[in-house]
Amino acid sequence: MTPFTLERPESLGAARRAFSGDAAFLAGGHTLIPAMKSGLRAVETLIDLSRVPGLESIRREGDRLIVGAMARHAEVAASPVVAAAIPGLARLAAGIGDPQVRRRGTIGGSLANNDPAADYPAAVLALDAVLATTEGTHAADDFFQGMFATALGDGEILTEVQFRVPEAFAYAKFRHPASRYALAGVAVARFPEGVRVAVTGVAYSVFRWADAEAALSAAPPAPVPPLVRDDINSDIHASAEYRAHLAGVMLARAVREMMP
């Protein structure tokens, strides 16, 4: 690992000020540290957010479920507040990585990293979430901007995720057995005005599946046509054709899980 200086600020303001030059924020570290160990990432300053208070609260506010950016996957999975508001989100968190990873990994770290096969981006996009930061807010539709790219500016810190509580939500993924990342993961959320569908693991970034949304929002729901895109991943784990097929299967599983 390329050497760096670790800062451990005790307030958001101090964390913000610690960011200068070639720097990065450290949340649970379960993506960033592996990336740094393998030489994919190097920084001069790493700013550990674990001592910044107030970033891990989980609470319900009206039609929103608020999850602090430093809430760990295990905390979201076990939270009665999450289970009451969006039970499918608790199940998603319980399926990330493995128990040790879930004790360290955070929702904010996952979203700021925006791995194209991560689970949380699909939920955030399907659930029409608002992402609050030190600089303001971002709508989920504008936040994810490509592989490992987000709307976060230099030194901007994600503070909380404000999920819109839906009528129903489910997430189904076909996971790679070693990495446990999604080969295809589909999140489906039903709101009064229609259904939102977000897909992860399939292309270079999470995306909304417009055809599936239109079909599932129709009354009565129409059959969903096969997923067609020109940017579907093809690699040693799965061909583009197989991934597109898996997306359809995961969509069907998620929809079945949402039925009463």
């Binding site: 670790l6 570290g29 379960h30 540290i33 592996p34 040790q100 004790r103 360290r104």
Partner: peptide, 19 residues
């Protein structure tokens, strides 16, 4: 590499000692 940090079992290959 599992060890306990503050009572929680974590993977010590993915934790900075400075943290």
């Amino acid at each position: 590499c599992n060890v306990m940090v503050d009572g929680e079992v974590v993977k010590a290959c993915t934790v900075l000692v400075a943290s």
